[in-house]
Design a protein around this nucleic acid. Structure first.
Lengths: 89, 89
DNA sequence: ACAATATTTCGCTAATTCGCAAAATAACGA
DNA sequence: TCGTTATTTTGCGAATTAGCGAAATATTGT
């Protein structure tokens, strides 16, 4: 399971997540919206999958990706901790 | 100004931020707590500074680093957006 | 001016990442 | 089975990164 923050460190991958925020999209639909070669995008999908940030389901010919918001929320919680000074020690 | 998520993608840098969460620390104090060579840590400090995640002040001989929570909060807000489906468009 | 302490910059190597084109795989419909 | 469409895997080069030791820089105290 790859590190979530590593997956989030690429602008291209964050852009993919932004697109998936609204609705699930196939690899091809994402490729129509992001100016990168399909193999390049496929690599990014893999990183996002390994981090648990998206899940993929085949639907006929296409593979549909959807965002996994609960994993985003975990990252959120980790960041939130940094904004709060330790209260009990 | 370097990308905040890129800066957060390194476990070593997140560990530095965790230490700074409680209180500001000098480079040497951080080096006592993290098993990496000082030049390596110095490089990480630089990345964190370029991302605006920490600020540095010389105090006599030492350089004291403190976390910049407002920039962490900006990253937080960017992540939070990903957890909410677009409502108005 | 000198020695001691704290930190950074330099120069290097090994490993990783990002992009692509070409080839391989998977599912569908005729 | 064959052809088409959708996506991934492979293999590559260029660029970046993370680590280190040695040397350089900055500050303090004598």
């Amino acid at each position: 399971m790859r590190d979530v923050f590593t997956a989030l460190s690429s602008p291209a991958r964050r852009q993919i997540l932004e697109l998936l925020r609204e609705r699930a999209l196939s690899a091809g639909e994402i490729a129509e919206r992001i100016p990168l070669a399909k193999p390049t995008l496929s690599g990014h999908f893999n990183v996002l999958k390994e981090a648990g940030l998206v899940s993929a389901d085949r639907q006929g010919n296409s593979i549909v990706y959807r965002i996994n918001t609960s994993v985003v929320e975990d990252a959120l919680a980790a960041l939130l901790r940094l904004t709060r000074r330790e209260e009990v020690e």
